[in-house]
Design a protein around this nucleic acid. Sequence first.
DNA 1: CGTTGAATCTGGCGA
DNA 2: AGATTCAACG
Length: 767
Amino acid sequence: MSSKNVQALYAKSIQAAGSEDVLLSQMPVEDVMAIDPLLGLAVGRLRENKVIRKPGYDGEYGVIRVFEDNEVDRLRGQNELFARAPANSLARAFGKPTTMKTVRKKGVKAAELFKTPVKKKNDMPASVDLETLNTEQTEIAGTYDCPVAVTAGPGTGKTRTLALWLAGLVRSGKAKPDQILAVTFTNKAAEELASRLKILLGGGSAEITVQTFHSLAFQIITTWYPRVKSIYDASGRNSIIRYIFPENTQGAIRALADKIEAFLDGTLDPVEPEIEAAALKYQDMLESIHGIDVAALCSEANLIFESRREVLDYYRNKYKALAVDEFQDINKTQYEFLSLLADPSGRALPSILVIGDPDQAVYGFRGSDPGLFKKFVADYKAREKMLSSNYRSSGTICMASGDVIGHNQTSAGMNLTPVRQTGPLVSVFHAPDEYKEAEQIAKTIRALVGGTDLIESGGIYTGDGNGSSPYSFGDIAVLARTHRSAEHIIEGFVEHGIPVSVRQASSPFTQPPYSAIADIFRFLANRQDIVAYRNIVARLIPELEALQLDALFVALASSGGLVEHITQHRAVQETLSEGERGRVETLHRFLEFIEAEVETQGVYKGLFLILEKLHERIGADLEAKLLEEMLLETARAHGTNLQGFIRSLFLEQHETVGMPNAERVSVLTFHAAKGLEFPVVFIAAAEEGISPQARTDTDLEEERRLFYVAMTRAGERLFISHAASRDLYGRTEAASPSRFIDEIRTVLRTTFHMPKRRKKFNQPSLF
DNA sequence: CGTTGAATCTGGCGA
DNA sequence: AGATTCAACG
Ligand SMILES: Nc1ncnc2c1ncn2[C@@H]1O[C@H](COP(=O)(O)OP(=O)(O)OP(=O)(O)O)[C@@H](O)[C@H]1O
C-alpha cells in the first residue's frame, strides 16, 4: 500500500468519523472496520492499549507496532497513517520541495513485543504507607516553632519527612494550604512532592504551592510584570548572542554564553567587566522583545522584591511556612530569594524546614554552593538534625555505595544504617562495546521480568530459582552519566523490544533542528519577539542569508510585529529577490494558518502541522520521533492554551508518556534520577572518561557524588556495566572501567565478562 | 548564482 | 558518524 493511498484512506476515515479524535477514540470499531479492516484492527488495538509504540529507529515516522510480522508489510504506509494526512492547503507550501530522507531497515520481530509480560508486583494502590515515621523523623516533622536544618544520607526518608511536616501544618491548623510554600530544584521533585501531599491531604493539597525556584520566580515576574512573555533558554540565548556578536567564532560564542549565563544567574565570580557589558547588551535585546532568560529568573525575582516593597510584603504575608528539599543544591541567588521571602532578622519568621545531603550535591556546574547549608544554620539559628536509617537499599547496596563515597575527602562520612537485609551482590559487567552492553542489559531485563534469554547467553541473572519473575518493567531503571550514553541504551532497547521511557532535560524542542517550533509558538504568543521571527525564517528558509534576515528583522521591528506588509518594506525589497519575497509571504501565510488552527483546534493541531512541515526538510532519527510523540501529547493536554504550553515547553522536563499505563523501563541521566528510587538499577557506561568525565575542569569529587547518587537509587539489585570500546565522533575509542567500580570492596561485587564480539552470529539455543 | 564536495566540529549535567 | 559551514566549481 503506497503512502498516498494510506493518506487518502485516512482522510476518508476521518471524514466518515467527523474528526480524527472521534476516529481514534470514539467511533465504533466495527464502523472503522467497514471503511478498512486493517485500520479498524489498528484502532481497536490502540484502544485496548495492547500497543507498544515503537519509536521509529528505522526511519519511519512514529511507527506504531500494532500488527504481527506478516501484517506489518501490508501496512507499509502506516507511518503516514498515524501521522495523519497533510493539510491540502499546505501541499505546495513555501520552500523548494526537498525529498525526505527515508532510511528503511528491517524492523524487529513484532511478535517479540507482544510476549512481554505486563505488570507484576508494583500495583501498590492508594493504601501505600506514607505516614509511618521513626523517632528521629517524627521529631523533625513536628518542629514548627524553630527553623530546622536536616542533614541525612540517601534513602533515609528525607522527602517522606518533609512531606509529613507539610501535611502536619495543615492537619494541625498551623497554616492553611495556601500559606505553605515548598520549593524544589527539579520539576520531577515538585511533581513527586505534590503527589505525596495529595495522598496525605486529599484535595486540599492543591492549594499548597509546590514549585521549582525557577517556575516560582517566573510566576512572580509575570504576575507583576506581565510584559514579559518569551522565555529564552540556552539555545535561544546562543542564537541571540551569535546575532549580537557575529564576529565571534563558534567556540567563543559558547564560552561567552556560558559566562553570560553565570552572570545572569548571579554566580559569576569574579564578575568580568567585558562579560557584564556583553550580558547587559544581551539583556537589552531581550528586554526589547519582551523576553527573559531562564538563567535570570531568580535574579530578576530578587530585583523585584528589592525594588518593590509591596510585592515583597505580599509574599511575606502570604507564606507562613516554607520548606526546601535537596538544599545542598542551592546557589547564592536562590539563597537570597529565600532570605528575602523569610527574613532571618524579621519578627515574624515563618516555619522553615530545609533538608539536604552534602554527598548528593551534584549541581556545582550551575553555581550551587553546599556551604550555604552552614550559612543557613547560622543565619536562621536553625536546629540541626540528622537521619541515619536507610529504608531504601539492601545492606549490600548501602555498603557498596558507602565504599565509593568514602573516597571523597569532603564526604560527610555520615553513618548509614541499612534497615533492609543484605541482598544480592552488585553485578559488574564488562562488554566489548556499547552495542553489546545495551544488548546485555536488554537481555538481563527480559530475564528479570520473566524471559529466559539469559540462560541462553550464560549471563548475569538467571532468576531467583523459584521460577517467579518478581519485577516489572516499571521497577527498572537504566542510569547513565550522559545523554549520549543513554541513547545507545535506548537504541538497544528499541531493537530488543524493551518498552522504554525517556526523560529529557531542557526541552529538545528549543534546540535545532526543532528550535523553529519553539520560535513559532513564541512568536504567536508574543508578536514583539522579532528574534523568534528571525529564527523561524532562518530555519524554514535556510537559503536566506544573514543580510536578508536582517532586512526582514528590521522591517518587522518597524511594523510592530505585523507581518503583512513586511515584504513591501524598502530594506526587504532591496535585499530579497521577488521569488524570495514570495517564499517569505508563503511562510507568513503558514504562520497565520497555524495561529488560526491553534485558536480553533488547539495547540496540538498547530504543533502537528509544524512538525509535518519540518519533515519536508529534515528527516527524523530515533530520538526525535520519540520526542515528537511526547510533545504532541503535551500539546494535547494544553488544549488551546498557548501560554500554558509555552511555559511547559521552556520550563519543564518532558517525558515520553505514550500509551497510558504502559509499563516501561526508565532511562535517565544520573542527574535526572536524583530523588527517585527503583528496585532494580543498571548503571551503564561506567567508564573512565564518562563517569568520571575527563575534562580539564572536571570536579572528580562531584563525579563521585553523581555515581553515588546513581548507586543509591537501587533498592534490591544493582548492575554496573561498561564497554571496552565506544564509538565517539566516528572514532572507536578504547575505554577502561570506571575507577568507581574498583572503589567498591571486592566481596560486594561479582564480575561477568562477555565473549568477544562475534560478527553476525546468533547464539543457538541450548535447549 | 547554485550546486557540490571538502573541511570542520562535535564539550555535561538542568531550569 | 553526522550535521553544518565553507570553498571551489559549473
Ligand atoms: N520510617 C519509615 N518507614 C518505612 N519506610 C520508610 C520510612 N522512611 C522512609 N521510608 C522509605 O524509604 C524510601 C526512601 O525515602 P525518601 O525517598 O523519603 O528518602 P530520601 O532521604 O529523600 O532519599 P534520597 O535523598 O536518596 O532521595 C522510600 O521508599 C520511603 O517510603
